[in-house]
């Protein structure tokens, strides 16, 4: 593909997450007051309202909670059919990502997956998943 994918605009609330992904890590935000994990990242813990947080590095193991295979419309920067996966992470929480290296008929709800950091031709990195080895 020639065109590149749409990049996320970065603010104080999400830029750190993408920086960690750029270092080949899959971060999950954690409240330092009550240890509750949260994703997508937000500035305050909805459980205890603490604004102090750090993150853990996810091991990258998860299962397929739901998915959709996109056919239309097709946007420059993406390959179709494009499988979007909603993944339950082993540590807790869910992430919306792309499933690759999996034939259409092999996609099954609850299948074990492994997350990895994909690098685009332009150097942009983002988490994706594939069937667990």
């Amino acid at each position: 593909m020639n065109a590149s994918r749409i990049k996320p605009p970065m603010t104080e609330d999400n830029g750190w997450w993408w920086e960690e992904v750029g270092r080949d890590r899959l971060p999950i935000q954690r409240c330092t007051a009550c240890s509750t994990l949260r994703h997508p990242p937000r500035p305050m813990c909805p459980r205890c309202r603490s604004m102090a947080w750090d993150f853990i590095e996810a091991a990258g193991r998860g299962t397929l909670f739901s998915y959709t295979v996109l056919h239309h419309p097709q946007f420059p920067g993406y390959d179709y059919p494009l499988t979007i996966a909603i993944v339950d992470l082993e540590e807790g929480g869910r992430i919306c990502t792309q499933l690759v290296d999996c034939e259409r008929d092999d996609i099954k709800i609850d299948m074990p997956l492994e997350m990895f950091i994909h690098e685009d031709a332009d150097g942009f990195k983002l988490p994706m998943c594939r069937p667990a080895a």
């Binding site: 994918r5 739901s66 959709t68 946007f75 983002l126």
Partner: peptide, 24 residues
């Protein structure tokens, strides 16, 4: 920022969002 978590993967349309719900 909300939309960007999905835009980056090419999940841009109302059909795609509802489809993920519908599959489950």
């Amino acid at each position: 920022i909300h939309w960007s978590w999905y835009m980056v993967y090419g999940m841009l349309t109302p059909a795609s969002w509802i489809a993920a719900f519908t599959t489950r």
